[in-house]
């Protein structure tokens, strides 16, 4: 009706800008909060919470992209690389805030945290696994790595297990978040297992 007719590539670009801006907006709000000092008396906690929360939300989006596309809603699938990179971005911010406020960039304290606190170790391991995925996310790398690329990027499944463990081991008296993300990520992983089982079964029949 009133919608202007756009040629497909231009519409695509418009969507790209919309999704890009949406993913960036939590970061803008966080920066605004820091600059305008509206994060309350203990910004450390707020920043850790928000960066971590957005990272795991994007992880859910990334893993939901494929089943959604299978069910006839390919919008997420088209932008899954962007979601993945943003997830890495928020995870990196999460780590930087941790280094700044909790560790004070002290190597001895960092080592102690890594070795003695399982949730820190698990979180850090998740970031380490994400780094090569972010580095090989370009089309060029994808072409060069060929079959390896798919295998490598399955690491995101391991990352989601680590992410749920991280949230679970962090919870103190309310396991609501751990349950929520456990169910979301768990069912997205189970869907993949089911797909994998279904195919050979169908071939055999």
């Amino acid at each position: 009706m009133g919608v202007p007719v756009l040629r497909a590539p231009r519409l695509e670009r418009l969507w790209w800008v919309v999704v890009f801006t949406l993913c960036l907006s939590p970061f803008c709000l966080i920066v605004y909060g820091v600059v305008a000092n509206t994060l309350g008396p203990d910004p450390a906690e707020v920043l850790m919470h928000q960066t971590g929360e957005w990272a795991i939300r994007l992880l859910v989006v990334v893993l939901a992209a494929r089943p959604m596309a299978r069910w006839g809603w390919p919008a997420l699938f088209r932008f899954r690389r962007m979601f993945g990179l943003y997830m890495f971005f928020y995870t990196t911010l999460h780590l930087l805030v941790f280094a700044q406020v909790y560790v004070g960039w002290d190597v001895a304290i960092l080592l102690e945290e890594l070795l003695e606190r399982p949730y820190v170790m698990v979180g850090f391991a998740g970031w380490v696994l994400l780094a090569p995925l972010a580095l090989t996310s370009s089309d060029g790398m994808r072409r060069r790595l060929r079959q390896r690329w798919r295998q490598l990027h399955r690491l995101v499944y391991a990352v989601s297990v680590l992410a749920v463990l991280h949230v679970l081991w962090l919870s103190r008296s309310d396991i609501g978040d751990a349950v929520l993300y456990g169910i979301l990520l768990g069912s997205l992983l189970l869907w993949r297992l089911w797909q994998k089982w279904k195919r050979p079964l169908a071939a055999r029949l």
Binding site: N37, P41, V101, G104, E112, E113, E116, Y119
Partner: peptide
């Protein structure tokens, strides 16, 4: 004596900020 999940050696004296954590 650390909490099993975090160190008790330092504390953030509130109000704290990102660039001046006040540890």
């Amino acid at each position: 004596v650390d909490h099993p999940r975090w160190s008790q050696r330092y504390e953030r004296r509130l109000p704290s900020s990102l660039f001046k954590p006040n540890r």
